[in-house]
Amino acid sequence: MRILLIEDDTLIGDGLKIGLEKLGFTVDWFTDGLDGQEALYQAPYEAVILDLGLPGRDGLSILKHWRNSRRNEPVLILTARGDVDQRIAGLNSGADDYLGKPFSLLEVQARLNALIRRQTGQLSPQIFYRGVSFDPQTKKVCKDGKEVTLAPRETALLELLLHNKNKVLSKETIENKIYSWDDDVQSNAVEVHVHHLRKKLGRDIVKTINKIGYIMEDV
């Protein structure tokens, strides 16, 4: 799950990036408002974390710009001010949720998961597929009731495919979704992850569509 993070405070930004990556997200972090605004058009993001008090361009203008150009990625705004007015302005400008500082990393994670769930039209937090259950908040994966340990990228790949059930995802899309700009991507990385997933969760968990990509299909 690739997240766009726009936050000018280096300590908060760094903490959020590293923390969210530890929690299984893929994070691109920008400190400048304008750079952040343009970044949304460069890669497929599941959600955006947007600080309102940004240099270069303030958060609300960025948000309005996105919504005017018909981008509907879920946006979680971060505000230092406790003002109700600012939260209302944020929500009215097209934000999906807000968090007031100081917030906790786990709360950011929970809100991101809720936003992504809502975006994909999924109601229950747990996802079930062919005897596999997946909890986006805890990243716990179970096969026939028994817990299975997956590497972070494998979890990210599983989550991505589950969120896009019945859709074919190209190798390139998958790379874009589970790696950030900062990561070095091996050319066969996706194949390797798919291989591991099949080994741990069963051969038919992922179906390969030749020359196009991968899919999880309902039975």
Binding site: D9, L11, G19
Partner: peptide, 10 residues
């Protein structure tokens, strides 16, 4: 404070 909290969680 947010920075401290987030970094502590990291």
């Amino acid at each position: 404070l947010t920075a401290l909290k987030v970094q502590l969680e990291v």
